[in-house]
Simulated scan of single mutants.
Amino acid sequence: MYGNNAYNVYKNNSINFASKEQLLLMLLDGSVKFAKIARQAILDKDIMKAHENIVKTQNIYYELMTSLDVNQGGEWAKNLMGIYTFIIDKLVQANIKKDVNTIDEVMPLIEDVRDTWNEAYKISKRNK
């Protein structure tokens, strides 16, 4: 019981004191995690668990889309918006069909988005 409570305090503090960039990376790590859980749930025929985790992944990308300033970011931001839209569309298809192949198709892109932002964060920390 104590260990679980200590973990929750740690987790809340991690979120409460994280920078914008760190929160972004946490979200992207979550998107990878939830997509992998959804994939396994589809294989396990756990439809509800698959649905819940696909929706969690989608919600992360919806949040990323709302925080993206296309006017400020120009062409780069528009391209990123297209990638986010593609990911969401594939997740919707995977959820409707409960199709592991569709998840497998989009999973490398979900991981690439996370890895790209992680690399950008590392570069920005070095340049400060």
Rank of each mutant, 00 (worst) to 15 (best):
M1L: 14
G3L: 03
N4F: 12
N5S: 08
Y7E: 01
Y7C: 08
N8Y: 13
N8K: 14
N8A: 11
S14P: 00
I15S: 04
F17Q: 14
A18G: 03
S19N: 06
K20S: 12
L23S: 10
L24K: 09
L27P: 00
L28R: 09
L28F: 05
L28S: 02
D29M: 13
D29H: 15
S31E: 09
V32M: 08
V32A: 04
F34A: 12
K36D: 08
A38Q: 14
L43Q: 13
D44K: 08
K45R: 05
D46A: 07
M48P: 00
M48K: 11
K49R: 09
K56L: 14
K56E: 13
T57A: 08
N59W: 11
N59P: 03
I60T: 10
Y61R: 11
Y62M: 08
E63Y: 07
E63D: 10
S67F: 04
L68D: 01
D69F: 03
D69W: 05
D69E: 14
Q72W: 07
E75T: 12
E75W: 07
W76S: 13
M81H: 01
M81C: 02
G82N: 08
G82E: 03
Y84A: 03
I88H: 10
D89W: 02
N95S: 06
I96Y: 02
K98W: 07
D99E: 11
V100G: 08
D104P: 02
P108S: 10
L109V: 15
I110T: 07
R114Y: 06
W117T: 02
A120G: 04
Y121W: 01
K122Y: 14
I123W: 08
S124W: 09
R126H: 03
